[in-house]
Write a protein that binds this DNA or RNA. Structure first.
Lengths: 193, 193
DNA sequence: ATAATGTTAGTTAGTACTTACTAACTTTTG
DNA sequence: CAAAAGTTAGTAAGTACTAACTAACATTAT
């Protein structure tokens, strides 16, 4: 997961393109134009297009992962950690709309199955992590036990997804952070013991 | 919304193709092959490719809409209607995986903005309908009033979306109906007054 | 009734364009 | 001077779509 400065530049250019008009505008031609050099120059830095998107995904996965790990390591109770994670997530996504485009299109990777596998793997890992958090909240006594962690995770993830989706459908015009906060208030009431 | 028998055949062939390998396999070439005739023949029945997908969306939208209207017209209380609607939805989607592919890819329509507008319009209409149902449940006294209908709708829709998504990610192997039932049990507990 | 005319639904062949990618050569840089 | 990073000019494959034509059937007119 070590990228050269040029590779990071290409990753960011890809992110910009996707963020502007969606995954379908991430073409070699557009990317080269954005980088102000020729198409073959891209192939000096990445084997093929798949590797570029893969790099984009892994690059941001690592950023998010580190953020979450920091929150989990902190001295807070489960509900507080949960809130922090939500905040962090919404803030990161608001700064990087491209991620929404990529993550939300897990069904329609024209490119190949490798990418959709990566996306679905990331999604699964996140689900697992949320389940673990909810479970420790249940053990701790702060989260209700009459509904199992798996189901509560479905509710939490669903709320997140829907909130982000309606932000996207508004053309990124609504205030994601405040919608995220409202969602958190709702989840807190629903989940509390 | 009146289609010729040939058009319905083409709609179904499109649905099959999308259901098998995703939206990206719905090409004019593949569709013509599936219909066992030439590519230009398709243009005798639809103006262009966009019209074909549009027809697919509207065709199923109408089916779902009628199903929901029937349920709403029945003599049941809000929670029962809600349950019936969820059941109906999951059953219809299980029979038509292609719809998941299309609806879940609202971000990445290569074709044009017309389609993504249709999809987002359908999504918005459904959200509105669910909010109305929840509100009447709140008036009726069966659904909690400490969380507003908009937020509860976000939770319900999110749960549905996530449940369907994990079904898709399993390669359509898990039991969607039973997962849908579990989701309903959870929502019932969370929403009840 | 039948010949003329029009329609429906298909064909073959091809357009114009875009896609990711490559070979061969040149420039820049440490 | 050699490796890294760029260039020009192409390729093969795929995209939606169109032009021109036709067989088979339906409608209309004499």
């Amino acid at each position: 997961m070590n990228f050269t400065t040029r590779q990071v530049e290409i990753i960011n250019a890809s992110k910009e393109l996707i963020g502007e008009k969606g995954l379908q505008t991430l073409t070699i031609k557009n990317l080269a134009k954005r980088m102000s050099f020729s198409e073959p120059a891209l192939y000096r830095h990445f084997k093929d297009k798949t590797e570029i998107i893969k790099a984009l995904l892994l690059f941001h996965k690592e950023i998010i992962q580190n953020g979450i790990l920091n929150i989990l390591a902190s001295e807070k109770n489960t509900l507080e950690k949960f809130e922090e994670i939500l905040k962090f997530k919404f803030a990161h996504i608001e700064k990087n709309p491209a991620l929404v485009m990529v993550i939300f299109s897990e069904t329609s990777f024209q490119y190949n199955s490798i990418l959709s596998k990566i996306v679905s793997k990331i999604l699964k890992q996140r689900t697992k992590k949320i389940i673990t958090i909810i479970q420790s909240g249940q053990d701790e006594g702060s989260i209700r036990k009459d509904i199992d962690a798996q189901q509560l995770a479905t509710i939490a993830l669903g709320g997140i997804r829907t909130t982000i989706l309606s932000w996207k459908l508004s053309g990124f015009k609504t205030d994601l952070k405040s919608d995220g906060k409202k969602l958190w208030e709702t989840l807190k009431i629903l989940f509390k013991n």
